[in-house]
Amino acid sequence: MTDTQPAPRSRPGGAPPAELAVLTPDSWTEPFWIAAAEHRLVVPRCTNCGTFRMPPSPFCYVCQAQGIDWVEQTGDGRVYSYTVIHHAVVPLMRDALPYVVVVVELPDAGGVRLVSNLVDCEPSSVEVGMPVRLVWDDVADDVAVPRFTAAR
């Protein structure tokens, strides 16, 4: 194996169908998804006042400045809240049941929250406050979505 070889593409257990991850980025969200495809989780931080915000947007909600730095995250987070979904609202989801949607807060990014999934875990193991770590889900050749699994 050489160090130029791309990372192996993989999908974690319990992740929702790839069809849901057909993205429609704009100029403010696109850098997030380009970094994600490289397996880097980045969150925009205001260059003027230092406030993190998600999703990426053209103005800081505190000082209204537009400048941002993309700050790479370790991917360590905490479950802020969650739901375990047992019913498919559309047929596409039938084979994915049950799956866990988590709202994860990132302490290293001012507590901004991501809407994601708990993967590679028993759904019943989820609880508010549980520490989680980032797992990349390669849903397509050029698209990766951040998911989370139990830390430790």
Binding site: P17, L20, T24, P55, T83, V101, V115
Partner: peptide, 21 residues
């Protein structure tokens, strides 16, 4: 929408699921 890209891929697709959180 660009904002929906941060929600829909997680399979959060209906109001009931969202209010469960």
């Amino acid at each position: 929408s660009p904002e929906g890209d941060f929600v829909r891929p997680a399979g959060l697709l209906g109001p009931g699921q969202m209010f469960s959180i």
